[in-house]
């Protein structure tokens, strides 16, 4: 079975928030973002002079804590690994918001129902990629199949960010630095 997940290229991410705003344009509503940019101190420079950024939304966990928490059984995991909320079943109790260890679920003030990243399920069904991936100007975001052996070498966590591992989040980080490009000659 597939398990789709986000691959974040840490060294590429500029923290420009294009992914956040494109997601908001596509699905969003006022005062709420499905996707958030996190900024952290760099591992090599703990003095705070250097930061890295990464973008995170729902991690479509392999073992999603929100799914059994929902009393209505409104949260399901599709065969491609995407965790979705059935809006028709959701009663808006907000239990899933508490249980999600990544704060990925928010209450939509307009519908009073839970709302989270569905990895642009409708776009994917049309053969398109997610809006955040297509909006990233530096290609710092990618959708990958976590279960594919060729993706086994990516990191499961990132320095400085506490990841709850019990849910086995389907997010991977790529930290390798690209070679510095010199545009001038001595």
């Amino acid at each position: 079975m597939k398990q789709l997940g986000f691959l974040v290229h840490i060294e590429k991410c500029l923290g420009c928030r294009s992914c956040e705003f494109s997601c908001k344009n596509e699905h969003g509503h006022e005062d709420s973002f499905r996707r958030n940019i996190h900024s952290l101190e760099d591992e090599d420079n703990k003095m705070g002079h250097s930061f890295h950024h990464f973008s995170m939304a729902c991690n479509h966990c392999e073992n999603p804590a929100c799914m059994p928490a929902c009393p209505e059984g409104a949260i399901k995991k599709k065969p491609n690994g995407i965790v979705m909320i059935d809006k028709a079943k959701c009663s808006g109790c907000g239990k899933c918001v508490i249980f999600c260890p990544f704060d990925a679920i928010k209450m939509n003030p307009l519908t009073a129902k839970a709302d989270k990243c569905d990895m642009c399920y409708d776009r994917q069904m049309q053969g398109k990629t997610t809006i955040c991936v297509s909006a990233c100007p530096v290609k710092a975001l990618e959708i990958i199949d976590i279960n594919d052996p060729k993706n086994a070498d990516y990191d499961k966590s990132i320095y400085g960010f506490e990841m709850k591992k019990i849910t086995n989040p389907s997010i991977r980080f790529h930290k390798k630095k690209e070679d510095i490009q010199h545009f001038w000659c001595r």
Binding site: G73, K76, K77, P79
Partner: peptide
């Protein structure tokens, strides 16, 4: 069969 069991375990 695999898909059915997956759906059963993931509320589909």
């Amino acid at each position: 069969k695999e898909l059915f069991l997956y759906n059963l375990l993931y509320n589909n």
